[in-house]
Amino acid sequence: MALSRGEVEHIAELAKLALTEEEKALYAEQLSAILDYFRKLQEVDTSGIAPTATVLPIRNVFRPDEPGEPMPRERLLQNAPAQADGCFQVQPILEFE
C-alpha cells in the first residue's frame, strides 16, 4: 500500500516536521513498507476478540488523593529556552484575530 505524497505531507504537518522533497519521497516509501508489514495483522481473524488496549493483566492502578511536594520552580524552568515572570516564554500566540 503506497502512501501518497499528500498523506506524507499531512503526517509531517501533524508532527510539525519540515521535510525536504527527498525526505518526503524516502518516507513515503518507508512508511508504506511499515504499513504493509503491519497489514499482516489484518489477516488474523479477530471477530471473536474484544478490542485490546493492553496485553498486560494489570487493571485499576490508582493513587489516593493526597497532595505531595511539587518541584522547585527554578528546576522546572532550568531547561526553558526563555522565561519571564516565573513562566515559560514562547512565541506569541494569537488565539483570536
Binding site: Q89, V90, P92
Partner: peptide, 13 residues
C-alpha cells in the same frame, strides 16, 4: 494557562 502580554506568550503549568 497561557498569558499574553507585551507581544509574548507566557505559560503557567
Amino acid at each position: 494557562k497561557l498569558i499574553h502580554i507585551g507581544g509574548v506568550t507566557l505559560v503557567d503549568f
